[in-house]
Amino acid sequence: MKKHATLRFLSIVTALVSYFMLLMGAIVTKTGSGKGCGNSWPICKGELIPESMPLESIIEYSHRIISSGAGMLILALTIWSWIVYRDNFRVKLFGIMSVFFVLLQGALGALTVMFEGPFIKKFMLALHFGFSLISFASVMLLVIQLYRLRDGKPDKSSGTPLSRGFGWSVWGLATYTYIAVYSGALVRHMEATMGCGYEFPSCGITKFPGFGSAAEIHMLHRYAGILLFVLTLCLLIVVLRKYRDNRDFVQGSWIAMILITLQAIAGIITVKTGGVLMAALLHTTIITIYFTAISYLCMLAGAPWKKRS
């Protein structure tokens, strides 16, 4: 139906704007533009259109405008999806998650602008990115679900049924991915991107991760990334051995493996180029898509904590 096609078009637009919102947040952090509008929020420097607009103010205010637009689109998409697919649980779930987390990340963004405590502020900035990531993934899952409904696909993937233990493993990987993402956000907000200089895989005399120095924080993220790569590879191997006929899961696992490999390469490029903006944005983009891919696998796996008939 035409109204359903329009709804799916809106979902694509919402996903794109949500991505730009997340990307602009990364640009704000990378360029140090978080104070571009002073301590006022949501307006800039106490004015709707400030007289003085240096580059950092333009970057910060653009982020706020895009975030506001994304929030309104997400709300509109959620309401419309609920009306059209009022009986579909996943449509309702992904919609409410999208709205909840975009509001939560917006509230944290406001707090970081008005709060002055250095360490707590950086911690809240890391949370801000993490919640933006969940919001984006929720929007993408809603988009996917809308298209699956169009194609008449069942809520669960076809093929060999997934064991309950494997389902827990997939959800465990998603949880660990989210933790690893926070280690990357910590590197960014603690200005530890070049904590090891231009060295890779070594880090001078620093061998172990920790929180005592920029090098230790950087190594914490490296170890987290290595483990994430290994876990993703293990997931792919298990899927290819036990669930090869489960087409959706095989495709999703391959996509996740390719993305985590590209993410590792982007991390190396970031170090070797001295943390230039484009490399950092590439790193952010790939991990965002990777987390969405793992979230998609969780959607296919269903809830392993529920008893199966």
Results as ranks from 00 to 15, higher is better:
104 L>C: 14
60 E>L: 00
107 A>G: 15
178 Y>S: 05
276 V>D: 09
75 L>S: 13
196 C>G: 04
262 L>T: 06
138 S>E: 04
140 M>W: 02
101 F>R: 07
225 G>H: 05
73 L>I: 01
270 T>P: 03
108 L>M: 15
289 I>T: 03
64 R>K: 00
80 W>H: 02
26 A>K: 01
302 G>A: 01
107 A>N: 13
179 I>K: 06
138 S>G: 06
278 M>W: 10
143 V>D: 00
257 M>W: 08
21 M>D: 11
297 L>N: 00
81 S>K: 00
119 F>N: 14
136 F>H: 09
11 S>E: 07
257 M>I: 15
87 D>H: 12
79 I>R: 04
27 I>Y: 09
188 R>C: 02
239 V>D: 09
297 L>K: 00
266 A>T: 09
216 E>A: 06
173 L>G: 12
23 L>D: 06
88 N>K: 04
257 M>F: 15
255 I>L: 14
300 L>Q: 07
23 L>N: 08
304 P>I: 00
185 A>W: 06
134 I>N: 04
61 Y>P: 00
39 N>H: 09
75 L>M: 13
111 L>G: 10
257 M>K: 06
295 S>F: 02
59 I>P: 03
157 S>N: 12
96 I>A: 15
203 C>V: 09
176 Y>I: 12
250 V>W: 04
104 L>Q: 03
308 R>M: 08
11 S>W: 04
18 S>D: 06
141 L>A: 11
135 S>H: 10
246 N>A: 13
190 M>N: 12
76 A>S: 11
9 F>I: 11
25 G>N: 07
230 V>Q: 15
122 K>F: 07
83 I>M: 12
279 A>C: 11
26 A>T: 08
88 N>S: 03
139 V>W: 02
102 V>N: 10
196 C>N: 01
270 T>L: 04
48 L>M: 09
184 G>E: 07
174 A>E: 11
282 L>S: 05
218 H>M: 03
185 A>I: 02
7 L>T: 05
150 R>M: 07
203 C>G: 14
279 A>I: 01
291 F>S: 13
307 K>E: 08
19 Y>R: 08
68 S>V: 12
247 R>E: 06
297 L>H: 00
283 H>G: 02
195 G>E: 03
289 I>P: 01
17 V>W: 00
118 P>D: 08
164 R>Y: 12
148 R>L: 03
20 F>Y: 12
